[in-house]
Simulated assay, not measured.
Amino acid sequence: MRTLDAAAARQAAYGGLVFGAGGGGLESGLRGGAAALDHGAPVLVTLDELRPDDQVVVMTGVGAPGVQRRLTRTADTLRALDRVIEAWDGDGRIVGTMVAHPGAYLPSSWFVNAIRPELLVVDCATNGRGHPTVAMGGMGLAARRDVQVTQAASGGLDDYLGHIDIVARGPVGVISSVLHHASAEVGASVASSRGPFSVDFCRTNGAPGAVSACLRLGEAMLAAEAAGADAMVAAIVDTLGGRELGRGPLLAAETTLVEAWDVGTLAVDTDGSRLEIVVCNEYMAAEMDGRRLSTYPDLIVTLSAADGMPTAAARMDEGDEIVVVAVPKDRIPLGAGVWDAVVYEDAERLTGRELASYALEGAPKR
C-alpha cells in the first residue's frame, strides 16, 4: 500500500506517456495529477493486498485519441463510474478502480480516488500499454456471448454535437461496439466505465503491476531528462528492454478519422530506407521497406529527436526528426484481451494489414 504523492504523479505521467505511445498529453496529465492531489491523497494497492472477491471498476475512454476538442469533463467520468457502481448487485464489495490502459493522463484518473478515498487505486490495468479498441481491453471477454458486463458512458457537449449518457449490460464485445458508435455521434470521445471485476479475475486476465511499471519508467526518465535527448531515449529503451528501429525525418503523417478511429500511416526516412508505421488509434505495426519489424501488442513509440520524449502521430509534422523504438510484448504487462484473434478484425479491416498472426505468435497458453 502506497500513498500517491506529487513525485508519484510526475513519474506516472512520464511513464504513462510512453506506455500510451505518446497519447494522453503530458501537460494535461501533470495538471490533472496536481488537481487530484489538491483534493486528497489517493492510495495505491496491489492485487495481493485485496480479497479475491473484492471488485474493481475499469475506468477508460472510448473514441479516437487524435480528437483535439475536449468533449468530456470530470463530471462525465464520475457519472459513468457511478452508473456502474449503482448497477452492481453481485457478491463482493467494490473497493477500487483501475484504468483500462496507461497514458500520460494516468495521474488525472486518481482524482476519483482522491475525492472518494474509499475507492483505492488498484495496481492493475486491462493492458499495461495502450490499445485501440475496447475489445482488446476486454480481458479475454470480447468473444464471449455468455458473460454479461455493465458498461456506462458519458460525454459530448450540448453546444457541439450533443451530450450522451448511456448504461448498457451485455457481452463486452457487443456493448463496446455500441459505445464506440455512440461516441462517434458526439465527436468521437466519451468517458466510460465497466465492470466490476473480481480481484481473482483481474489477476488472471488483467495486467497486474501496470501502474508500478509506469512509476519505474517515469523515475528513470526524470533522472535522464536533464542529460538530453540521447539520455532520455536510452533510459526508455534500457528500462523497458526495447530497441531502436530507426531515426530520421518524418516523410509523411497521413492519418484521418474513420469510423471514430484515427487510421493511417507515418513514414520516416532512416538513412535512405523507408520506415513505415501503421496507425489505428495506436501504432499497430512497423515495417522497413515492406519488411515487418514489430507488431502490436509490441509497444511501438515515436520519440522526438530534440528531447527524447514521446510524441503522438496527431502532434507531428512532416520534417520532424524522430526516433522509433519498439518494446517486445513479453516485456510489457498485458491482459488476456490481446491474445484473442477476433479483437484484431477491426484494425485489420481499417488498415488493410495482417496483424493477428504476428500478434499471436508466442502467445501464452490460457
Rank of each mutant, 00 (worst) to 15 (best):
V167I: 14
A188H: 14
A231L: 07
A260W: 00
D269N: 03
V237R: 09
E219D: 11
V190K: 05
V237I: 12
T204G: 05
M284C: 15
R216W: 01
R291M: 13
E254Q: 13
G241Y: 04
A213L: 00
R194N: 15
A226R: 10
D230V: 07
P249C: 07
A168E: 11
A235H: 01
E254Y: 09
M284D: 11
L179S: 03
E287P: 01
G248E: 02
R243H: 08
P196C: 08
R274F: 03
A227G: 01
V190S: 05
P249K: 04
Y283A: 14
G228H: 07
S273Y: 02
A267C: 01
S198H: 02
A220Q: 14
A182K: 05
S193G: 15
A285N: 12
H181P: 03
V178C: 04
R216Q: 09
M232V: 15
C214N: 07
A235R: 04
D230G: 01
S192V: 15
A188M: 09
R169S: 12
L250R: 04
D269C: 00
D269P: 00
G187S: 06
V174M: 15
P249L: 09
A252L: 15
G248Y: 01
S176I: 06
L266P: 02
F201W: 12
V258K: 10
V268C: 00
G218R: 00
D238G: 07
A229R: 08
R274I: 10
R247Q: 13
G218S: 04
T265C: 05
A188D: 11
C280M: 11
S189K: 11
T239W: 01
I166W: 07
A223T: 11
C214S: 15
V258D: 12
E244F: 03
T204K: 14
L266I: 01
R247D: 04
S198K: 02
G206M: 01
A188K: 05
C280K: 11
A223L: 13
V186G: 12
R247A: 11
G272R: 02
D269I: 02
T239V: 06
G241T: 03
L266S: 04
P208I: 09
A213R: 14
V237T: 09
T255V: 15
L179Y: 09
V190I: 14
T256F: 08
E244I: 12
A188S: 15
T204P: 00
A220M: 00
I175C: 06
R291V: 09
L251V: 13
V174I: 10
G209D: 02
R169N: 08
V279N: 13
A234D: 14
V199L: 08
L217S: 12
S183N: 10
V178S: 10
I166R: 07
T255K: 13
L222I: 14
T270N: 00
P171I: 13
S198N: 09
L251Q: 10
L215P: 07
G218F: 05
G228A: 06
S176L: 08
G173L: 11
M288F: 13
E287M: 10
D271V: 01
A184P: 04
N281G: 12
T270F: 00
D289K: 02
S176C: 10
R169V: 12
E287Y: 06
R216A: 15
G195K: 04
G206R: 01
V233E: 14
